[in-house]
Design a protein around this nucleic acid. Structure first.
Lengths: 213, 213
DNA sequence: GCGATTTACGGCAGGCGTAAACATG
DNA sequence: CATGTTTACGCCTGCCGTAAATCGC
């Protein structure tokens, strides 16, 4: 009888992923669970929400209405988290990071999930650009932190993996020595605890958190 | 770790009612359940949300932020229900009813809850005014349905209860004979099934539904 | 047969109520 | 003592995963 926001989120995932199977993968659930949630949502509102097709399920018109509602609710919740974080003087603001493909895929992407959980008020913008342009944007202030390949003698071949990276932040340089293949990705940069909420960037630096993904 | 919309609704109820005890009454729950929901919400967001005072609990600043979010989510959900109802061609629109105190309290107020559940797209506006003004507003179109006291010989004393009501709708008159004291409030007006969604009023009339409250 | 979704069923976390305890004027 | 909130504990609904079934190409 009453619409549950949780089920709406599941429906939204189905909409975005384009099917129950894909949505289950995104939500870290089984297709069975997703299907059950959708079924309960349909019985709750009394309307068919999914158009089952052999190539996956697409939303009906009513389903799209509910998905849009879910989208707005999701945005409300994330906004609330940000406001809460700003309220209690946590790290807040926007950090623009420039890097190249390898670092983005192997280092930054797995990092943002944990960071978003830990610092809801922190907004990370990652942009890919080459080293020359990155340093230029860094000086102009459009970028807060750049990660670029260190020039090593071995970096001559076409697919030369970067042996080390050099990061710039707050007028200083950090070198991140390459580490052994490990399951848990750990950062080694120094910690700068939150120094009050601010709307300008960069507010703080990503602190050390051993358990982070 | 993630904010649950259900818990936010509980928090909003506490905010509106002014305390856990009053909120439990509104939500048809026990104070224990409300307290537990609030406690879980606090542990989820990691912030104190209620300021426990001897005369009841009031929301902290963070709590108010969350309550505002809950208010917006609630509005989103009701909007979605209305859109859904309009989509499937159910009764939709606004009906302005004019009546007097006794009818409003004894008849309309217990009715609106059931109607809102059954017809989310129906918006009921109830206004109190005397018979003369009501008929005038009815003719002007500002009011769709009026309920006024029938002039009976016994209606001479200062607190003469109305023996019967006369209702106007769609250029016709219905007389609702007084019925015996009964637990279940039942309406006797004729049914006009939904005739497509419309944004003008009055779209349809309240249909007959024996089981309705 | 393969891909996608659904159904049946069992386990388990979470929500709620009862009852008692705690806090405060 | 009265009012308001919280805690302990048991029950039960509801969610989820496993496994099997259904449907369509």
């Amino acid at each position: 009888m009453d619409i549950d926001a949780r089920k709406l989120a599941v429906l939204l995932a189905v909409h975005r992923a384009g099917g129950v199977l894909a949505a289950a993968d995104v939500l870290h659930l089984t297709p069975s669970a997703v299907s059950q949630q959708i079924a309960r949502l349909e019985s709750a509102v009394g309307v068919t929400v999914l158009d089952r097709q052999p190539r996956g399920a697409v939303l009906t018109q009513a389903g799209r209405v509910l998905a849009e509602t879910a989208e707005r609710i999701e945005s409300e919740l994330t906004d609330a988290r940000k406001a809460l974080a700003a309220l209690q003087g946590e790290v807040t603001g926007t950090v623009v990071i420039s890097a190249f493909k390898t670092v983005i895929r192997m280092l930054l992407v797995p990092l943002v999930h944990g960071l978003r959980e830990q610092f809801p008020g922190l907004e990370l913008l990652i942009r890919e650009m080459d080293g020359e342009k990155a340093q230029q944007e860094l000086r102009s202030g459009a970028v807060d932190l750049i990660i670029l390949e260190a020039e090593t003698p071995s970096a001559t071949g076409p697919r030369a993996a970067p042996a080390m990276c050099r990061c710039w932040r707050n007028r200083g340089w950090w070198s991140c020595p390459r580490r052994r293949r490990s399951r848990s990705v750990r950062r080694t940069w120094s910690t700068s605890p939150g120094s009050g909420s601010t709307r300008t960037r960069p507010p703080t630096a990503p602190p050390n958190r051993p358990g982070a993904v």
